[in-house]
Design a protein around this nucleic acid. Structure first.
Length: 901
RNA sequence: GGGCGCGUAGCUCAGUGGAAGAGCACCCGGCUUACAACCGGGGGGUCGCUGGUUCGAACCCAGCCGUGCCCACCA
């Protein structure tokens, strides 16, 4: 008799999720204990911006991390998943500045101190919303160890490392050309600049005297014979090409290649700069590409990085003609114009003076934009702090090269090397107020003092601190050890550093991963910050398109959690997560995941209604039916595969394997095959010993398989599995239940082969029934032939029960014959119901397939080289296939004949 | 300009030397009391193109076509 079950027929995630999460936290499931003697496993979360909310990219990133951590926890590791947020310099400052703007205020109205106070206030009130959202997703982070990149401890870490870099000469201040955002009004590092191919206008301008002018080379990039380019005039003139005409106001030279014969005679002379009357030298520098344009370059050291370098080499003056907002400061008619207003104005003026040679032409070239606000970057000469990345980057590259750190997938290591091996110095100062202020004081007599965390800054007349703050990625780079207590020697640091794995999207390989490597190795005496970098892709829509608001294809994970459940959301993401590749998702797929959760729910519900048991040892081998041995064998195989895929970060395959095992093997076959066994015991309620024992064994095996399956799925879909597992076992939570291990003694290939044969028989009969249009309830008399040969003699009643075949009674007459692989034949008596045309079509299809197979096998075997060179097992396999196909053909032909055609 | 991928069923993707696979979508039949968020059955692909290597190629090699991404200081 099926027992009553407390479970409703459908899984309702909402209430379960909240209850389970509270239970996990209140019972300390996520709390790490540094003093334990368990093996450590640690992941530090990529700290989301404190301004952020949980988007689908976080959901993917967190699902992967949570899955890894939960599995390790079940495996008995001392696990720590450390949560926290990033102060996100520009982003946060912008948020608060916008808020101020609604009050008609700017940050300057408040002043630095008040403004920073205001940001902290904002953070206290509305920052970190994402942390609450992480609970919805089920993140098993240790909430007792939450950190913030500007909290006291981390600030101390920042000051400590800065001081060390300064003392080692690796942090330095210099006047350089940096990337400047004229809207954000701050310097940016190279990676905060995004390049795009924009269309500009290449203008050729003649500098100097008319008669000395040299025309641009026809075809622009062809080098023309030098002799023809020479002009004999006494005046000096030269033609340069530029896309940024306004910068000519800041030119301090014209450069040509030293070996360029066209210009050799001009080097060392001066030309007059149009519109200004200034005279500037013509210099020779190897940087100039003689094949580009005219082979002569205007040099603007204060507004172009290359020109700056040239200027340094030739001791040219740096003439700044733009202010921090990109407005012309040079005296003259253009003063006060924006750079993009000045450009056409200057081209027009040059044209008026007859200085524009030939026509201007459209020119597509890479233009840098601010990654935050998309404003076009203005290279700007200014005094900034830099990190000399040379030795740090080399160490960061070596740690991967020598295998101490593994990048997964390995192909992305190439990108990593390309970057760390060609890194420029890192500009770390930002002209912002929100962030770690640079701990350097300048004295009245030009002194520069870097003040460590435990030192007092110099006092007295004329001393002042550097106004700038550090790049937000500076503190992020310390995250793997600063969060564990560095620079103190804490138990956490001793236990959990190096961290085990760093999970993040490949898009911040450069921003973050490489820098953590540099600083981790530097601060921790050459110890890497993590052993493995597991990179995942970007979440995309079901057509592989990037998610964007303008496309309207953005998925809100909280919406999915609300409608389909956190587990369904997680499963959908994990199911698409192949290492390093992008993850397509769609609402339909999330529905499918929800359905899967519901399937598990109902399978467990069935088990509970039928008294499945989970306690005590499994019965001895002799008690198992072939079906029991099959499912237990499959379980071992699945457990092994899942472990293998987990270790390779192949989450998609973990999901796929468990999905099919759960749905196909457990639900569609094992449970269906268990029903008659359980029903037989029910029929013999008065106590048929054999049927009762078989049912008890089935209950125990079903309970065991579900118990193990729920454990295997728990890291991916923690909520539903925990609810079901605790219902099944009566225990509180599966969170720390031992992870399943493979028991090889349960591997049983014969049982697997037998059940495959059973499935073939059943499927074939079902196909026949379907083709014949037989009602599900309609019973047909049949004779099953050849079952013993495939080990199915014991299971004939089971098969009959599954496909509703009666024993061949008196008057049985075979009217159809199903030839099934392995020599099994099912003869059916379908008098009165058979559809001759349908049956003929079915058989002819089978005949065609058999004939094709035979032809294929023969062709192979008749190739002499095949027999000679192919391995014996391959040849044998083909012979087997041929024999089977020939047998099939014979049976099908006989059936067709019997059909009376 | 340099580098790295990818092209397999309508869609998204597995498969990387020996019989073309999955999920979803589609078609047919079913409320068979765990589940209609389900069950059973089915159709559908010269594996981008062209050559080559091999007894054998979706898989290895070359070229081409298409497509995506990353890096980049050619004015």
């Amino acid at each position: 008799m099926p027992a009553e079950t407390p479970l409703p027929a459908q899984y309702a995630p909402g209430e379960v999720e909240q209850r389970r999460y509270d239970l996990w936290v209140s019972t300390g499931q996520f709390t790490a204990i540094p003093a334990s003697d368990r093996q450590p496993y640690c992941i530090v979360i990529p700290p989301p911006n404190v301004t952020g909310s949980l988007h689908v990219g976080h959901a993917l990133d967190h699902t992967i991390q949570d899955t890894l951590v939960r599995r390790r926890r079940m495996q008995g590791f001392e696990t720590l998943w450390l949560p926290g947020t990033d102060h996100a310099g520009i982003a946060t400052q912008n948020v608060v500045e916008r808020q101020l703007a609604t009050e008609g205020l700017s940050r300057h109205d408040l002043g630095r101190e008040k403004f920073v106070e205001r940001v902290w206030q904002w953070k206290a009130e509305s920052g970190g919303a994402i942390l609450g959202q992480m609970r919805r997703l089920g993140d098993s982070v240790d909430w007792g160890r939450e950190r913030f990149t500007m909290d006291e401890g981390l600030s101390r870490a920042v000051l400590t490392i800065f001081k060390r870099l300064f003392d080692d000469g690796l942090a330095y201040r210099a006047e350089r050309i940096i990337n400047w955002c004229p809207r954000c009004l701050t310097a940016l590092s190279d990676i905060e600049v995004e390049h795009s191919d924009d269309e500009g206008e290449l203008v050729s301008i003649r500098y100097g005297d008319d008669d000395g002018a040299i025309s641009p080379v026809p075809g622009a990039s062809q080098r023309a014979p030098a002799s023809e380019e020479r002009t004999g005039g006494a005046g000096i003139g030269i033609v340069v090409a530029t896309t940024r005409a306004e910068t000519m106001l800041g030119d301090t030279a014209v450069a040509v290649h030293p070996d360029d014969d066209r210009y050799r005679h001009l080097v060392g002379k001066e030309v007059e700069l149009p519109l200004t009357g200034r005279r500037i030298p013509i210099i020779a520098d190897a940087h100039v590409d003689p094949t580009f344009g005219t082979g002569a370059v205007k040099v603007t050291p204060a507004h172009d990085p290359n020109d700056f370098e040239i200027g340094q080499r030739h001791d040219l003056p740096n003439l700044t003609i733009l202010d921090e907002r990109g407005v012309i400061t040079a005296n003259g008619p253009y003063q006060g114009l924006d750079r993009f207003e000045a450009r056409p104005a200057i081209v027009a003026a040059l044209r008026e003076h007859g200085r524009v040679v030939a026509e201007t032409r459209p020119y597509v070239h890479a233009v840098g934009h601010c990654s935050r606000c998309k404003t076009i970057i203005e290279p700007r000469l200014s005094l900034q702090w830099f990190v000399n990345t040379g030795p740090l980057a080399r160490a960061a590259g070596d740690a991967v090269r020598d295998g101490r750190v593994r990048i997964e997938p390995a192909e992305l290591a190439k990108r990593y090397f390309a970057w760390v091996d060609n890194m420029h110095d890192w500009c770390i100062s930002r002209q912002l107020w929100w962030g770690h202020r640079i701990p350097v004081w300048y004295g009245p007599n030009g002194e520069t003092v870097c003040v460590g965390p435990d030192e007092q800054p110099p006092t007295g007349e004329g001393w002042h601190q550097d106004e700038d703050v550090l790049d937000t990625w500076f503190s992020s780079a310390l995250w793997p050890f600063s969060t564990l207590g560095w620079p103190d020697e804490t138990p956490e640091l001793a236990k959990f550093y190096p961290t085990s794995v760093l999970v993040t999207g490949y898009d911040i390989l450069f921003f973050w991963v490489a820098r953590m490597m540099m600083f981790g190795l530097y601060a921790m005496g050459g110890q890497q910050p993590f052993d493995v970098v597991a990179l995942h892709g970007m979440v995309r829509d079901q057509h592989g398109k990037k998610m964007s608001k303008s496309f309207g294809n953005v998925v809100d994970p909280l919406d999915w959690i609300e409608r389909f459940g956190a587990d369904a959301t997680r499963f959908t993401l994990a199911r698409g997560a192949n290492p390093g590749s992008d993850v397509p998702v769609s609402e339909e797929w999330c529905q499918g995941s929800r359905n899967f959760c519901n399937k598990l729910w109902n399978a467990t519900r069935f088990a509970l209604m039928n008294g499945a048991t989970v306690s005590g040892r499994l019965p001895g081998r002799k008690q198992f039916s072939t079906i029991d041995r099959w499912i237990l064998s499959r379980l071992q195989q699945v457990t092994a595969e899942v472990d293998e895929y987990f270790d390779a970060f192949e989450f998609a395959k973990v999901c796929d394997t468990l999905y099919h095992f759960a749905w196909d093997d457990v639900c569609d076959w094992y449970v269906e095959l268990a029903k008659p066994v359980l029903a037989a015991a029910g029929d013999a309620a008065t106590g048929d010993g054999a049927a009762g024992d078989a049912a008890a064994t089935t209950r125990r095996v079903l309970g065991h398989v579900l118990d193990q399956l729920l454990r295997l799925l728990h890291p991916i879909i923690p909520f539903v599995t925990d609810e079901l597992w605790s219902g099944l076992t009566g225990k509180k939570t599966v969170a720390r239940a031992p992870w399943p291990t493979v028991n090889k003694s349960y591997v049983d290939e014969r049982a697997e082969a037998t059940v495959v044969a059973l499935q073939q028989v059943v499927t074939e009969v079902r196909r026949f029934r379907s083709d014949q249009g037989l009602r599900p309830g309609q019973r047909v008399a049949a004779r099953l032939i050849g079952l013993p040969a495939v080990g199915l003699d014991q299971h004939e009643p089971l098969i009959r029960s599954l496909v509703r075949l009666d024993e061949p009674g008196t008057g049985f007459a075979a009217t159809a014959s199903l030839a099934i692989a392995g020599g099994v034949d099912v003869e059916l008596d379908t008098r009165g119901v058979i559809d001759v045309a349908a049956e003929r079509a079915r058989l002819e299809k089978d005949r065609g397939a058999a004939e094709k197979e035979i032809a294929g096998c023969r062709a192979k075997l008749d190739t002499p080289a095949f027999a000679d060179k192919a391995p014996a097992d391959v040849v044998a396999k083909v012979r087997e296939r041929l024999a089977a196909a020939e047998a099939d053909l014979a049976r099908v032909s006989a059936s067709l004949a019997a059909l009376g055609v």
